[in-house]
Amino acid sequence: MIKIQDVCFGYNEGQDVLQGLTLEFDQRTTAIIGQNGAGKTTLVKLLKGLLKPTGGDIWVAGVNSKDVTVAQLAGKIGLVFQNPNDQIFKRTVLEEVMFGPLNMKVETAAAKQQALQALEMVGLADQTDVNPHDLGLSEKKLISIASIVAMNTDIIILDEPTIAQDAAGKRRIAQIIEQLSQEGKLVMTILHDMDFVAAHFERTIVMNRGKVVLDDKTREVFSHQDLLREACLDTPYVTQLGKQWGLPETVLTTEELISAMKRPR
């Protein structure tokens, strides 16, 4: 669904943040991990068209990102920003979520329909007439997710979706990711919460200093403790505990660990 070929990018001349990246994305839920400054945000901005590569090409659903404006690309790829306050600007939740579809020239009635469905998915269908800014940060995050979902793009990128979320908020976001993925969409994320990545993403890409150092099934990636440590990353707590207890396999969720421990040995 996305193809990137030999992509380079630098904010200042002579200092490339990304150095010749080649990647392909399919429908698997994908997490991009790496310490700050590894180039994750830059990569996402390039995919979204907010930045244009200084070298190489990016094709999103067959369109070269260099040939179109960000707004023209918006129908194909959605990005939920890290801080919802940067994104929310309408008076009611419904208007806010309808903004994207209306920009895509969807008829008002249909836009409303899409918006309501999206709000249903994030569990805010009963809040349509509320002013978004009267809600808490975790609800605002859900609104900003809904307003991207409503645009019905095939690709959705979530920037740090679990920041400032409590246990319930995290569960809700996990459900949303699963549902979107079942609808055949590519869900991508930049995330620092390793246990969340392990539990909910099929593919994990590890970046370090502008390069991809690991790109594989999540279980495979988290079994490379040494390579992760080189990229200044930890394995999930649950994986560490499994290793500590001498399990031969890499466990990714508490359920896996529990059933592995209950298994007669």
Binding site: A74, F81, Q87, N103, M104, M151
Partner: peptide
């Protein structure tokens, strides 16, 4: 950042 957020939702700013 806000301009980016709005462009991202299909608002033509260029």
């Amino acid at each position: 950042t806000i301009t980016d957020a709005q462009r991202s939702r299909g608002m033509e700013t260029e």
